[in-house]
Each structure stands twice: as C-alpha cells, then as structure tokens.
Write a protein that binds this DNA or RNA. Structure first.
Lengths: 167, 167
DNA sequence: AGATTATGTCAGCGTTGTTGACTTAATTTT
DNA sequence: AAAATTAAGTCAACAACGCTGACATAATCT
C-alpha cells in the first residue's frame, strides 16, 4: 500500500522493506563521517586535507613505499598525488630517497616530524575505536575485523595483508 | 629499538605498538572506499556525484524533510546543498512542496524516478553488506550495528533514531 | 640502439565543499 | 500594526582534491 499523491510524489519512507540492510548503510555513513572528522580538525590547522592524511598514513605504515605503490593503494592519479606529496616533502614530513636497486624509483619515508603527525592523527581514531570496542565483548573484535575485511573487494586483500602486522 | 638513519628519516613501520587499533583504522578506510565505489559508478552515468546520492538517500528515508533538516543531517552549508538539490529537482528526482503549517518551509519528497534511483543506488551496497554478514553468525549482526553506532558521536544518535524503522 | 618504465611537470577542468552578503516571503514578537 | 526573526534562495569568490592529456627526464630492459 503506497501513498501516492495527485502530483506523483512519494510520501512513504524508504525502509528495510524496499532495500535490505538500510540500517547498516546509514550507520556506516554516519560512523565514517565522524571517524574522519577528528583528524580533519587537526589537519585544518596545518592547511592540510584528507588527501595529505592518507599519504602520510601509508608512508608511515610501510616506509620505503614507491610512488607507484602509493598510487595503487590510494587509487588516485599521479597528478593528484604529486600536489599533496610535494607539500608533505616541502614541509618536512616526508623524504624521498632514490631507490637502491632501481634508481628511477623514489622510496618514500616519514621524517620524525612526519611520524609525529601520523601518530597525532591516529590518536583520536584509535580512541574512538577503542571506546566502541569497550562496549562489546572482547571476542567481538574478531567479528568487526572480519566484517570490515569482507566489505573490501577481495582484489584489495593482498594490499591489506602486505602491510606490516606489528614489530 | 628504532632504526634511525644518517639523514633522520624513519625506516620502521608504524604498527599497533605505536598506535592502538591501526588494523581497524585501515580496514575502515578500505571498506568505506569500496562501499562508496559501487554507487559512484552508477552516478557517473547521470553526471551526479556522491553529494547527490546523500541528498537523494535522506529525502527517500524521510520524505517531507525540510531544507534545514537536511542541512543538519548532512552537515554542509546551504550553498553546497543548493547546487545539488537544484539539479535533483531539475531532473525530476525530487519535488519541493510548500510546508502546510509554515509556508516558508519547503518539504522535500522523492518522485517515482527519484525513488527508483535511490533503490538502484542502494542495491549494490545492500548486496555488499549482506555478503559480508553471510560469512558471520547471524547473531553477529547486532554486534556490527552496535559497533557502528558507538563509532558515531552520541550527539548524532538522535538523528539516526529519528529515521523510520520499517513500515 | 631502441623500447619501456618510473617519476615529475605543465596546463586546464569539474565537483563539492567553504564564507560572506543580500533578498524575499512568512511567521513571531513586541 | 510595526519590528524582529526565521526559512529559503541567490550571488560572488574561493579552496581542496579529484580528473585528463601531453610531454620531459633519467634509468633500465631488450
């Protein structure tokens, strides 16, 4: 029973009846929005954006990454990366070192300053996640991780697995 | 034991040792990227973007929303909304109706075309979520929902709860 | 020697966000 | 009834961050 209207507009709300998993769709939207809002505030003061965050994050997670690897992970173009990477280098957060095997390559490393910023940006996100997990049974952690990984395209799993575990 | 280098760059990877919950931080990043990639492809053909998707989604979830309510949910400015909303109205996906109580207000409703597009955009996201949930115990659904809600700022819970449950 | 590869760069463009200022119409307050 | 406030729309300018296409350089591979 749909409530049609003279001029054809719809007054009934879209619900689970029409499309499955709507509640998780919108929770995911709100959760990710707030999850990124914390670092965004820190970045603003440095006139950096979310793009800088992502670059800085992955260079810290896997020091020595080449430009090509980074493009593959971030799925953006060389020109988009060039802009933010240049700024991160100019501000002393990242350094480039000529590849030892292949001297065409530029290996990317964080400076101490770059590491410090990466940690500062991660802190509120860690806190938010830890807080959310505290409300659950410790065993549920594996459930969350499994769910999130299953949400990623399998083609990307290799990239995730290639990041250092803990050392 | 940190591996310092002559010129001061850092070669050790950032891991759980330095910041808690790093694995979930990056899984969340990858998961959300792929989660939004599906609808993005559909939107491209219509020369719409993610902003159109969000507006269309919430107008479908709560028909009769006013412009002010939508701004509050999306947390963007009036000018940002105006552009995409105008396009959605011009293309016949959304209609505006003068508020019955307060005639200054414009209540927003989806057209049949707008509802159809919202469903089309939700389909791949529902599928992705359903697929991820299939790999878990049915009881774990509540865990995911609880975790995601806990990731949202409590100030926003009221907005989430105000959306129609199912009817 | 010639082709390919990794990176960098130039020029231009589109989407989506921002701020500030102003208008119009309707409602609320005094 | 006049004044203040509110909801919405609009104009102009701007910034961040994506994109494409084309081209340059150096190093490596065939």
């Amino acid at each position: 029973m749909k409530s049609y209207t003279p001029d054809g507009h719809i007054e009934t709300a879209l619900t689970e009846q029409h499309a499955k998993e709507l509640d998780i769709i919108e929770l995911f939207f709100f959760a990710y929005r707030d999850f990124t809002a914390d670092p965004d505030m820190i970045l603003e003061k440095l006139t950096f954006g979310r793009a800088h965050h992502r670059v800085l994050y992955f260079v810290n997670r896997k020091p020595g990454m080449t430009v090509a690897e980074l493009l593959e992970v971030l799925k953006i173009t060389k020109q988009s990366l060039a802009r933010v990477l240049k700024q991160l280098i100019d501000t002393g957060h990242i350094v480039q070192i000529q590849g030892p095997r292949d001297r065409r390559q530029r290996e990317l490393y964080p400076t101490h300053q770059g590491r410090a910023l990466a940690l500062e940006l991660a802190a509120p996100q860690s806190r938010r996640i830890a807080n959310a997990l505290e409300q659950l049974d410790p065993s549920d952690r594996a459930v969350i991780e499994h769910f999130l990984k299953a949400m990623v395209n399998p083609a990307q799993w290799q990239q995730i697995d290639s990041l250092p575990k803990s050392g």
